[in-house]
Design a protein around this nucleic acid. Structure first.
Lengths: 244, 244
DNA sequence: GAATAATACGCCATTTTATGTCATGTTTCT
DNA sequence: AGAAACATGACATAAAATGGCGTATTATTC
């Protein structure tokens, strides 16, 4: 004779949900609401505690069940794209020296990284050190700025994350078109303009590209390995010098 | 005769984890690895599908089980503190104009806000517009900077998030100690130094406080309402002027 | 087109787990 | 002291999970 017929684990979810609404709640209430015996609720609570939910119980008259104030933050379920944006966002925030309020983002980053498929994990774990945030772009740069197309955007992102070479069609400062095959190793933001720094395969040298000057980008199957950071120092300095 | 003795739902987790490793995987492999029969694996997969995991199966020779590429990325469960830090981190990133890679953080923020207890949601939703990120602090400021104690840090955060008044003991620039009762309305970061801008209750005026000069902070029960942003313009300009 | 390797699913006996009931203990408030 | 709350043990029973078997279906390979 149950109020709603659920499997056990749905009931556990239901209990957790009711606990989160930090209203006064007793085990007896739960038993009635969920149509099971008090003993079962008791066992369910034990199970929840085993699984890491810190259910606190106050004995005695006027007592009841609680979660520690503010433990109620449930699961976050992000799409792939959102997860990647969040990673970038973390990379940015972790570049700010702040001993308070954003001091422990590393834990969040670890959890986020852990949610990726193992094959991507190690590649993604190093992402933070391959993104640089500069100041904002100069007026001249902003003037000539145009947003990226969806396809290019996809390809760039995939190449950067998965360490795969890209074939680019690029229009340089002078307006000349070139075909290139590059390893997208670093990203740099001079808001609102993103730059890719890559190893140019034909020229065997570091080159940097303003993302919105890329006309086409195609993902290849060739993987690459990360190059030492110092090889990019000069290129980074160059881009930063664009704005006075 | 089981490889490892687990309850059913632990086994479901194990299956999901193995599926994420997008290596070739058949139901038979799973059955052997987990020490249960093929029939059980089959039932487990049905259960996973019921619970919303889009397990794809290729029949026939060379077939096997898969998850859609990138499914399940971004499932994480955060502690309250982590969620708050993440919110602040988002507030920071959303202040950067970037049309790519961090353009869609709003969705993440919404999901994050939704995961808080209902009572806090509306207060937290406006948090983004009450945090400002300035440049980095001047050498002189950094010189005199000291990290915050855990208790003060807790109280400040709680007051700011929950809109509750704080009683402060503050040492001003001249070194003079004062007792104050303030409404913590804004936060401002000149890395690594945080400032609180608040409405000082005794003086009936906006005042700003360098967080690391706060000697004591006690949370009171009195709630406050947000004041219009323009009242803080002058104070913000002041703090920014500290660094030339 | 036949053999093979994979998933899918129904049925049923058996094993395991979950549940209810009853009993007892403990803590806390009135 | 008594009532209201959680905690926990024991045991019979109800429910669910499991294994084994058979069959169907789909895709690949030879």
């Amino acid at each position: 004779m149950r109020a709603t017929d659920r499997s056990r684990f749905e009931r556990l979810d239901a209990i957790a949900a009711r606990l989160k609404d930090d209203a006064a709640l007793t085990a007896k209430d739960l038993a009635e609401q969920l149509g099971v015996s008090l003993r079962t609720i008791s066992r369910d609570l034990a199970l929840l505690r085993d699984r890491g939910v810190p259910v606190e119980a106050d004995r005695g008259r006027g007592g009841g069940l609680r979660l520690p104030r503010h433990w109620g933050v449930g699961r976050l379920s992000l799409t792939y794209r959102e997860a990647v944006e969040l990673l970038v966002c973390l990379a940015i925030a972790e570049q700010l020296p702040s001993p308070w309020l954003i001091a422990n983002l590393a834990a969040v980053r670890r959890k986020l990284v852990a949610s990726f498929a193992p094959a991507l994990k190690d590649k993604i774990a190093s992402l933070r050190s391959r993104i640089l945030i500069g100041g904002s772009a100069s007026a001249a740069v902003i003037e000539s700025f145009s947003p990226l197309g969806a396809e290019i955007s996809e390809a760039l992102l995939a190449g950067f994350l998965e360490h795969r070479r890209l074939r680019l069609c690029y229009r340089d400062v002078a307006g000349k078109l070139t075909e290139r095959e590059i390893e997208p190793q670093w990203l740099l933001l001079n808001a609102p303009v993103w730059y890719v720094m890559g190893w140019d395969h034909k020229r065997q040298a570091v080159r940097s590209f303003r993302c919105d000057r890329i006309l086409e980008a195609h993902l290849t199957e060739s993987p690459f390995t990360l190059r030492p950071a110092r090889e990019f120092d000069a290129a980074i300095a160059d881009i930063r010098a664009i704005r006075p």
